[in-house]
Design a protein around this nucleic acid. Structure first.
Lengths: 214, 214
DNA sequence: TTGTTAACTAAACACTGTTAACTTAGGGAT
DNA sequence: ATCCCTAAGTTAACAGTGTTTAGTTAACAA
């Protein structure tokens, strides 16, 4: 037998080819700069072939992002290793900013684009809340650690609210850099300085007055 | 004589018609959702007529944004009236978040889209640095006031760096809301709570430890 | 050898932003 | 009154987009 299995393997191979070609174009040209025809040309299939594997252009790139969400969570897990909860949150923030500035096109599509609300599919459900592949879950875990350790001011107990605020802070730095970083209108300070002050300021604002010296 | 003047007036009238039609579509459909042909249809001109007034689609919407940059600065000036520098910065932040959440499509185009770098034109030069029409200049002015009043920690003296960090903070809240606010992946807290905590936290992080009670 | 299935393709549809070539209306000068 | 010219506006087309419909082809199962 084994025919079905081979067929499936072959199909998922061309699926991967599509993903690889799309990723390459995507990284250098961004979402709008990639056309289904160009992807098809690279893998030497007809444009229609892509639609046998993905419902539309958006689903194709959502799949690409799934991989990157997981990659980000992995980087978090392998790098955010400080034992001090606040120091760890600072590490997470720095890693996040590094990720965003190194992969601006992915970042744009992952976090700066309004995507039509879609019902969570199987892949989503596997990832949501699992810190190993869900970067938000990892951040929330780290925030909860800090709450439990009493690192924050006593009235700050909602791990989701704190996580969303920390996320917004670093997201603000990255997304402003990507969207307006080469705008002459503003006399931009170096990105590293802005990132540093943001992390410093936000965490200082979350902890009790005496906890941070400086 | 006066012929030339009438001609110019007529031309700028159809120019305004184009801008009005474009704005209406833009507000409800966003940049990608607006086509030159639909704009033309509304004002009952041929699509090509638009190109007599604007070099391309992007210039048309840049013009729209110019108006909104100025509008934002006006709202700042008329509303951010507290005499306490820190309280005023909090007001500015709240106004900015309100502006962004009430005009998501404009906000997206103004601050979440990478636009090709363009040499500042006459209109730009008129606006840059003028707090009456340049919202960033207004923010920087308010920050400088706080620096001069000794409201911040003593090592914080760079008004540009502080402004850019404050901007990034509120921008993070809005842009994350616009891009991911209806995403099921995250258990979002109410926007008002996130905005409040962000402003509270950031300003607390900028001032000396004893300056804010709570 | 036939029938079925599933991968794949060619051609077309309905769009998009933009441009080149043409028309036309209005005023100035002879 | 006639000519000319300017500039606003139009028609038709180009080159591209995402996507769909109908058809082909190749490989396996019966």
């Amino acid at each position: 037998m084994g025919v079905k299995e081979r067929r499936e393997r072959e199909k998922s191979e061309t699926r991967d080819k599509i993903l690889d070609a799309a990723r390459e174009l995507f990284v250098s040209e961004g979402y709008e700069g990639v056309s289904m025809r160009r992807v098809a040309e690279i893998i030497e299939y007809s444009p229609t072939a892509i639609y046998l594997h993905f419902a539309d252009k958006e689903e194709l790139f959502r799949e690409l992002c799934h991989q990157d969400y997981a990659r980000l969570a992995e980087v978090f897990q392998s790098s955010a290793i400080s034992s001090d909860p606040i120091e760890r949150l600072k590490q997470i923030g720095a890693i996040y900013i590094e990720f965003g500035t190194r992969n601006p096109n992915h970042y744009k599509f992952m976090f700066m684009t309004t995507q039509p609300v879609h019902e969570p599919d199987e892949l989503d459900r596997e990832m949501i809340g699992n810190p190993e592949v869900d970067a938000y879950a990892f951040l929330k875990w780290a925030v909860q650690q800090a709450v439990d350790a009493g690192s924050f001011r006593p009235e700050l107990t909602d791990a989701d609210l704190i996580s969303q605020t920390l996320w917004a802070a670093v997201h603000g730095v990255i997304s402003l850099q990507i969207a307006k970083g080469s705008d002459q209108w503003v006399d931009w300070r170096p990105l590293a300085d802005r990132a540093e002050l943001m992390l410093e300021t936000t965490l200082r604002g979350l902890v009790p007055p005496q906890k941070v010296e400086g």
